[in-house]
Design a protein around this nucleic acid. Structure first.
Length: 688
DNA sequence: AGACTAATAT
DNA sequence: CATATTAGTC
């Protein structure tokens, strides 16, 4: 059997046993309308040990070729034939299956030869053909393979080509045989079946299952956290893939994985550094890398439609798996970015509803406040109202706090008379907070009463706090996370510019004038791109709560831009809080549980913030750190890293407080009662 | 030879 | 985009 063939020994065609028989059995389709000629040709080809299929009809030949695309390796055809002549056949074959075609002709007419060549013939033989010539025609098959390979990949590997050829699959245009499975060849042969496998296909499967390539790694929150921890430990300069990998100690993770992530990380860091430090800038760019990073990070969970899968954090890295970790539509992701970016939109009123110039003025006067954007189209809901909240943050603040603010005696809202006579569309309120710049909020609502809105900000890194708030903190809107994330990756630089005095605030108000139902809060936090997220639905937001990076298995339902996340685990607590808040609201909203210091000041963490130096993590009060959850810690770490990058010698002067977002949760009653509770918390990182 | 990382591919 | 893979260097 094959043995004989060894003529070639292990030559180019095959080193492998299975393959070295290569030209033997090569499938040749011979076409010549002259019965005598075809017979002779057929015999010669057979003597060359090819597998020959002969026909005197070019039409029939074409049919066979079309029906059995992968059944032939080469076509040898006479030029002059009725119906479809050799050139036509050549052309069709070249077009449809890309098989090597050899022309045969009794005429040595140069023109004909040229024509054949131009049509793509790989060879042009003159009759009578000598067997010696036929013994070498297999080279065209090999060549074809190589060429094909070349086109795809620069490196055409002769061996591979030969291997492929050997297989017999010769497919034509489509085949992919070339793949990886060189060995497969033998197997293939065995499968006698020749059914026409369509050309392509078999590629991947035949291999051993083990060969399958690994699923792509997904850097979820947990993994990223480890990464950050490692980087932090090593210090930016020393953080190289291998070391990080070691420190991360994650089974299955490769250096390459880390290298890739590191590359991205550095890129983000770089961008962060380059971008202006202005907060606005920081938050505005949708394209802002940070934000992107954010999405990369665990925050991505918000976009997950179903719970996120995670693999044991300690061991296996997470891999994307269909179904489990399904990313929502890309848009969503960007939108998230938009959320933070919305902070940048503080200035002008965008909503058409704000028609009133006075409103605009109002707005202008309160730079830090929030604007209501009514056109927010929440794609998701039918209820139109929306409130835009903007928040800000500030510098000196070192601590995080949350505060409830009573508004207006009866309603809790400060409603400019200007609006009272108008439709209940916009409500504004502003409160001077001690020492802080005034903030105001515009609410607008048109729709029927609704349900709940909740406002709460996400946990700040340092602000963290009070145990009782914990639950609260964990429940955050996706947007919050984004911010947080953003902050993590780039915070320092961008926020450093904040004026010391400016204190960002977020406020959520509600007025009885408004049809309670439809309050739509479009806060920076709730905004997605230009579409605000409507939190007014009955279900109320909910957030997953996982710490930011958490691993919880939440089910997030994301409708278009709206994010409704529900986390079974924490839902309960959230509900509790909700209730709790509601109750408080009717009262005066005492920050009962909060992080806020009784007097409302933010000095809480002041001390730590003032310590500059040393390791970041150490700058923070130990106690506080202890209370921090992972996400917060991570944030801190990243901030530290960032710090390293920006100021080798220490933190930049001001702290950059960060006010993440606010989420407002209101109940109908609350709406009616006119109470508004605002939770403010500043994310203060440290700074010197 | 092994590791880094920028560049490029998927 | 987020990751993986490649390729040039050190």
């Amino acid at each position: 059997m094959a043995e004989n063939q060894k003529g070639g020994g292990s030559s180019s065609l095959g080193d492998e046993n299975g393959r070295d028989r290569f030209p033997v059995g090569m499938r040749v389709l011979a076409v010549d309308d002259d019965r005598t000629c075809i017979k002779v040709l057929e015999n010669m080809l057979r003597s060359c040990q090819y597998h020959v299929t002969a026909t005197t009809s070019s039409i029939k030949a074409l049919e066979m070729l079309r029906q059995n695309r992968n059944k032939f390796d080469l076509v040898i055809s006479d030029v002059k034939m009725p119906d479809i002549d050799g050139f036509k056949l050549l052309e069709l074959v070249g077009l449809e299956m890309d098989l090597p075609v050899i022309m045969l002709s009794g005429h040595r007419d140069k023109e004909l030869v040229m024509k054949g060549v131009l049509h793509g013939a790989c060879d042009y033989l003159l009759k009578p053909v000598r067997i010696e010539e036929l013994q070498n025609i297999w080279q065209h098959v090999v060549r074809k393979k190589i060429d094909r390979k070349d086109q795809n990949k620069a490196a055409a590997n002769v061996e591979e080509a030969s291997n492929m050829v050997g297989e017999g699959s010769q497919g034509t245009a489509s085949e992919n045989n070339s793949d990886p499975n060189v060995k497969a060849g033998q197997k293939r042969k065995e499968q006698s079946e020749e059914e026409e496998e369509d050309d392509e296909e078999n590629e991947g499967e035949d291999e051993e299952p083990s060969t399958q390539k690994k699923p792509r790694l997904v850097w979820d929150a947990e993994l990223h956290r480890k990464f950050i921890d490692a980087v932090n430990q090593l210090s930016l300069e020393n953080a190289v893939p291998k070391k990080i990998l070691d420190l991360m100690n994650v089974e299955g993770l490769t250096r390459e994985n880390v290298a890739s992530h590191l590359q991205k990380f550095r890129l983000g860091l770089r961008k962060a550094t380059q971008q202006g430090n202005s907060v606005a800038a920081a938050m505005s760019g949708i394209s802002d890398p940070y934000l992107q990073m954010g999405s990369i990070d665990g925050y991505r969970d918000f976009r997950t439609s179903s719970g996120s899968r995670r693999i044991s954090s300690t061991t296996l890295p997470s891999y994307a798996s269909g179904g489990i970790y399904c990313g929502l539509n890309p848009t969503t992701g960007s939108s998230m970015g938009g959320i933070s970016s919305s902070l940048a939109q503080w200035q002008p009123v965008q909503s058409q509803n704000m028609m009133n110039s006075s409103v605009n003025n109002l707005v202008r006067n309160f730079p830090l406040s929030m604007l209501a954007a009514n056109q927010s189209s929440s794609l998701l809901h039918s209820t139109p109202t929306s409130v835009e909240l903007n928040q800000l943050q500030q510098s000196n603040c070192t601590t995080g706090f949350r505060q409830s603010i009573p508004i207006d005696n009866s309603t809790g809202f400060s409603v400019p008379s200007v609006f009272t006579d108008r439709k209940p569309t916009i409500v504004t309120a502003n409160y001077p907070l001690s020492g802080l710049s005034s903030n105001h909020l515009l609410l607008q609502g048109n729709s029927p009463p609704t349900h709940n809105l909740g406002a709460f900000r996400n946990p700040s890194s340092l602000g963290a706090a009070p145990a009782n708030t914990e639950t609260f903190n964990t429940g955050i809107s996706g947007s919050s996370n984004v911010l947080e994330y953003t902050e993590r990756w780039q915070s320092a630089a961008q926020l450093s510019n904040f004026p010391n005095n400016s204190l960002p605030l977020n406020e959520a108000l509600n007025s009885n004038q408004l049809p309670p139902n439809s309050l739509r809060f479009s806060s920076s936090a709730s905004h997605i791109g230009n579409s605000p997220v409507d939190f007014s639905s009955t279900s109320a937001i909910h957030v997953p709560l996982e710490d930011a990076m958490g691993e919880r298995q939440c089910q997030d339902g994301l409708l278009g831009n709206i994010l409704q996340a529900s986390c079974s685990t924490q839902r309960q607590s959230w509900e509790d809080h909700k209730q709790h808040y509601s109750e408080n609201m009717s009262n005066t909203f005492n920050p009962s549980s909060s992080l806020i210091s009784p007097n409302g000041d933010t000095s809480y963490l002041g001390q730590s913030s003032n310590q500059n130096n040393a390791d970041c993590s150490e700058r923070v009060d130990a106690s506080l750190v202890g209370q921090m959850n992972e996400a917060e810690r991570m944030k801190l770490n990243e901030a530290c890293i960032f710090q390293q990058m920006n100021s080798p010698e220490g933190f930049s002067q001001n702290t950059f407080g960060f006010l993440d977002d606010i989420i407002i949760e209101m109940n109908k009653q609350i709406l009616y009662s006119a109470g508004v509770s605002v939770f403010l918390k500043f994310d203060c990182s440290f700074g010197k």
